[in-house]
Amino acid sequence: MADTTTQAEETAPAAAPADRKALRLARQITAFAKSHGGTAEGQLAHIARGSTRIALVGANGEWGVLVAPSMETARKAAEVAGLTLHDDFDGEFAAKVRTGPYEWTRMAGLQLGGPANN
């Protein structure tokens, strides 16, 4: 069987697990942007045990969340994906989020006939 590895593959160091995770997150960010108007903006926030939340808002107002194992990995993923980052999730950035009936009933709980907020 012929050897199909190239010289570059043989001499290139293996990607660190954090780099692979950052690239995987970058692909997810890019896919989110593509399916929600072509662009997305985001905000990074520390959550429990060193993890970082990547909040995404698409050009059409749809939103989503990804979780990175560290702030460094989240920043690298955002950089690779070309994600515009905001310091805070407030003001003009928060106003871009489009919420629907599901979110309103979840937030209001029993007042709007949704589930109780226990």
Rank of each mutant, 00 (worst) to 15 (best):
A15N: 02
T6K: 09
G58H: 08
P17M: 11
N117H: 08
G109M: 02
T30K: 10
D88A: 10
R27Q: 07
T52H: 10
E92M: 03
V57Q: 02
Q111F: 11
E92F: 11
D19R: 05
V80W: 00
D87V: 08
R24H: 15
A74Q: 01
N60H: 09
A48V: 03
T6C: 12
L66W: 04
G38Q: 09
V65G: 12
T73P: 00
P101Y: 10
G42H: 03
T105Y: 07
I29E: 00
A22W: 01
E9Q: 13
K21C: 06
A2R: 13
T99F: 14
L44G: 01
A55H: 05
S35C: 07
A40D: 01
L66C: 05
A48C: 12
V57D: 04
S70L: 04
G61Y: 11
D90A: 14
R24M: 14
A108D: 05
T52G: 04
L66E: 06
L110E: 14
T11Y: 07
E62Q: 11
T73V: 06
Y102H: 15
H36Q: 11
I47H: 05
F32N: 12
R27L: 04
A12S: 15
P115Y: 13
E79T: 07
H46T: 08
G114F: 05
F32A: 04
Y102L: 10
R75T: 07
G91L: 06
D19A: 06
E72Y: 13
K76R: 13
E41K: 12
S70N: 02
T6H: 03
H36W: 04
L56M: 10
P69R: 14
L25I: 03
I29N: 00
A31V: 08
G58P: 08
A14G: 12
G100L: 15
A108Y: 05
R106V: 10
E41Y: 07
V67L: 05
